[in-house]
């Protein structure tokens, strides 16, 4: 019997070892600590914390707002990436650079600016007030803040894919009589879908954990505009570590399941139709 063949590419052992140690230090160990801490709670107590009405509504607000924001970014991010790649216009470089700003500025600053312009005295708030729309201190405000935070994720994942699109595919479709919208929907969009889903997943994951931007634009009212991260911070402030970790673990599991789901969807979109 011969030994199993070694991979042609050297360095597998070393790089995998490094990856695993790094992941352990940064992700596995802290998360395990969190889970172990929550596991100290008797199951009944854990359940009681989670099914509390206030906690449940916080979960609902967090997940729904994040979903709406990521969905808006799915489309807006696609349009912005498309414009940045396909058209030439004055100030393109500057707009391209501005896309990354939400990554860079402290989220609290973003939250304060957004809540100022959307407040009843702010420029946007005044305009929207005419139509009776109130963004600041409402659930809509949470979504606005999350759209701001999540935008770069979609733009930056889709942009390189649009750049790589094969122009001949569009030309072939045009020669077969397709107009621009048919080309976009039937030829280009299917090629962009996997990267759009990646961008969506990133924006969604980032949005779930967002705290700084939201607490300034939201009124943070329990049952109405209170998000999960804020609830955790409040529990911690009351030295209720067990309660905080129970909510944290539940959040973690929910987020992991959702991201896994998006990943599966993405694999499906990549493999496309096969009979």
């Amino acid at each position: 019997m011969s030994k199993p063949k070694k991979s042609q590419l050297p360095g597998f052992g070393l790089t995998l070892g490094l990856s695993l140690s790094y992941m352990s230090l940064l992700i596995f160990i802290p998360l395990t600590a969190l889970i172990l801490y929550a596991a100290k709670l008797p199951a009944a107590d854990f359940w009681e914390i989670i099914v509390d009405e206030r906690v449940k509504s916080a979960f609902k607000i967090s997940f729904l707002s994040t979903f709406y924001a990521a969905a808006v970014n799915f489309f807006l991010g696609l349009i912005i990436a498309w414009v940045l790649v396909r058209y030439q216009f004055f100030g393109k470089r500057i707009i391209d650079a501005l896309i990354d700003l939400p990554f860079a500025i402290p989220t609290a600053v973003a939250g304060i600016s957004l809540s100022t312009i959307f407040s009843s005295q702010g420029i946007m708030g005044k305009i929207l007030g005419v139509f009776g729309i109130d963004i600041s201190f409402s659930r809509a405000g949470i979504v606005v803040a999350l759209i701001f935070i999540g935008l770069p994720f979609v733009v930056r994942t889709v942009q390189p894919v649009i750049e790589e699109l094969d122009a001949e595919l569009e030309e072939a479709a045009a020669s077969l009589g397709a107009n621009f919208y048919q080309i976009f929907v039937k030829v280009l969009f299917p090629s962009l879908l996997p990267s759009l889903l990646t961008g969506f997943a990133l924006a969604f994951a980032r949005g779930l954990g967002e705290y700084g931007a939201i607490i300034f634009i939201s009124s943070n009212m329990p049952y109405q505009t209170e998000i999960v991260p804020l609830l955790i911070v409040k529990k911690l402030a009351q030295f209720n570590y067990a309660g905080a970790s129970a909510i944290g673990v539940t959040m973690l599991v929910c987020a992991f399941v959702l991201l896994l789901l998006i990943n599966v969807l993405q694999v499906y979109a990549k493999r496309r139709r096969k009979i």
């Binding site: 001949e168 030309e171 072939a172 020669s175 077969l176 009589g177 107009n179 039937k186």
Partner: peptide
């Protein structure tokens, strides 16, 4: 799209 020409590319350009 209005010229009614069939076009075949060197690298096929299949969807």
């Amino acid at each position: 799209k209005d010229r009614h020409v069939g076009f075949v590319f060197q690298h096929y350009a299949l969807f």
